[in-house]
Design a protein around this nucleic acid. Sequence first.
RNA 1: GUGGGAAUAGCUCAGCUGGUUCAGAGCGCAGGAUUGUGGCUCCUGAGGCCGCGGGUUCGAAUCCCGUUUCUCACCCCA
Length: 425
Amino acid sequence: MVLSSPRGTNDVFGEDIKYRDFIINSAKDLFRLFNYSEIITPAFEHTEVFDRGIGKSTDIVKKEMYTFTDKKGRSLTLRPEGTASVVRAIIEHKMYSEKIPVKLFYIGNMFRYERPQKGRMREFSQLGVEAAGVAEPFIDAEVIWILNSIFDRIGFRNLKLMINSVGCEKCRRDYIRVFKSYIKPEVESFCPDCKVRYDTNPLRIFDCKVEQCKKIIEGSPKIYQHICADCREHILKVCHYLEKMGINYFIKEELVRGFDYYTGTIFEIISDDLESVQNALGGGGRYDNLIAQFGGPPMPSIGFAIGIDRTILLMRQLNIKYLTKELKSAAYIALLSDKFYDTGLKVTKLLRENNIPCDISYKVRPLSSQIKTAVRDGFSHFIAIGDDEIKTGVFNVKNLEKHTQFKLNINDSSKNISAVFRSSL
RNA sequence: GUGGGAAUAGCUCAGCUGGUUCAGAGCGCAGGAUUGUGGCUCCUGAGGCCGCGGGUUCGAAUCCCGUUUCUCACCCCA
């Protein structure tokens, strides 16, 4: 029996759960404010959803998918990202016939077969939004606003928001012609990957880290300078709204992203504080043709995703604490003899019925040890059960934080009990 | 898929050029000192096939090879 979780996966427990809950709760509060509703899609889809959605020429589809055949011979794939599934669901349920825009958010685990390293796992969690059916640049800015607000609420400050436009179908085609003719004389000098990209997806050459390739494209025309008048107007309006909102950003003309479905506005948010090369915390963009391409109606759309695990990493690194929604009041009940289990049961039942979290020492131990345990585990109150309490029915409740003590009569009405407890906070 | 480093107790690690102080420390955990009251102190205890497999050797935690996992980077992304 192998007792380690598979490569690139991990168990999330203890403090990580608190960070995670904090991030998710912060995001959910914002989603509510922006009127998005949740969608939960399956962890796997028909392989075609990603093949056609993300694009066959992308690295993700080519070499990073967990694809398997089920017992009926269907090809299925564990989702490597969230957008394709959500788009599939929007079309399947004809959500656009209820209202437009369709504004959805999702939280889920994603799977990519890669070599794990800091901030990159084979199974990881993302949360994201998709706003489908609106072409106005206003919604681009609003979506970026949400993205920015999530990190703002968490407490990140030194983030960089990068924006670019990769143009619409038409202007991209024109640009690619210009770009290819510019680099054509040098194509033999490219790295093997870029030689392939030259034919399949020239824009991705901008993502290449090989010095030689970077040099060749250094002075090349950038797509941002070659987008058509409509696309230019669109991105300028997005920038205008961002400025009105006071969101800092900068145009990064070389920015490209790894999914084929993007059109027009794309963006990425990175942290220079993240002690890792994997510094992208979130990103997204427009996908104006994807829904139609999937057989749905024409629905220009935009979305983003953020990496929950990387966000936790950065929070830990910057020493940012999570806020918990846990009740601060919790009681620890100590037994001084094993005669008192029945009374212990009665007290815990009473407290729990009154919404006061509590735990009990399952073993009889010296009183001082039990207090130590209660303090260590962060209980605010301590109740010992011994002969005196049994006789009188009155329990001394010790407030471990304030070093005070009060009496609790377990024959009091429930209302009284919670009142007495709360007043001691 | 490519390249570097690492793996000893729950955690952080020590363990020299192979040989009865080589199965160790600190922290944590459990119990006690303490038969009804707090973070200290002291005592005691549990826990490891030294990642796994092979090799070299009279003898391997230690040297060699393989493998798995972790880690860092490339690629790519969140």
